[in-house]
Simulated assay, not measured.
Amino acid sequence: MTTNASECFNGVLKRARGLPIQALVCATHYHTIGLFLKRQENAIGYESEAVSPYVPRVRVMLRKHTS
């Protein structure tokens, strides 16, 4: 799990490697904010669908464990 997270973060930094430190920090910050906003939009979409109070991944897990 640690390797996976570090590889993802490394992928973010790959495009910004040649930048100065301040630009590197800004690029990382804005990328992280973008991810949070994308997840927030997904959560709002799931909420508005009102199929279930759970996100799809949790619904799949619940189906596996109740079957």
Rank of each mutant, 00 (worst) to 15 (best):
G11P: 01
C26L: 14
Y54H: 14
Q22G: 03
P56C: 05
F36G: 06
S6W: 07
R17F: 04
K38L: 12
Q40N: 06
N4M: 11
R57T: 10
E7F: 05
L62H: 01
A50D: 08
Y54A: 05
R59N: 03
T66H: 04
E49P: 00
P56F: 02
C8P: 00
G18M: 04
E49W: 03
E7Q: 14
I21L: 14
L19G: 00
R39A: 12
L37K: 13
V60S: 11
N10M: 08
Y30K: 08
T2G: 15
R17M: 09
N42T: 06
I21S: 12
I44T: 07
G34D: 02
V12K: 05
L13I: 02
A23S: 10
A50F: 06
V58Q: 11
S48I: 08
V60E: 15
R39K: 12
N10W: 05
M1K: 12
L19Y: 11
L37N: 08
F9A: 09
T66A: 09
Q40M: 10
K38M: 14
I33H: 07
V25E: 04
E49L: 14
L13E: 07
C8E: 13
Q40K: 14
Y46C: 08
P53L: 05
I21N: 03
K64H: 04
H31I: 02
I33Y: 10
E7P: 01
R63I: 00
A43W: 07
A27D: 07
R57Q: 11
N10P: 00
H29N: 09
T32Y: 12
G45Y: 01
R63N: 04
N10H: 07
C26D: 15
A50I: 01
Q22V: 12
N42R: 14
H31F: 06
C8V: 07
V60D: 09
C8A: 10
R17N: 03
G34H: 03
T28H: 03
C26G: 04
P20F: 01
K64W: 02
G34L: 03
A5T: 05
E7I: 08
R39Q: 13
L24D: 00
E7T: 10
R15F: 09
V25F: 06
A50M: 06
Q22D: 12
K38D: 15
Q40H: 10
G11K: 07
R63T: 02
R59D: 06
S6M: 14
V25H: 04
P20I: 02
A27H: 10
S48A: 15
S48H: 13
V51L: 15
I33C: 11
A43S: 10
R15S: 11
C26H: 11
G18R: 06
E47Y: 13
A27V: 01
I21V: 15
V58F: 11
F36P: 00
H65S: 03
P56N: 04
Q22N: 10
I33R: 14
L13V: 02
R63W: 04
Y54N: 10
T66I: 06
E41I: 09
G34Y: 01
Q40W: 11
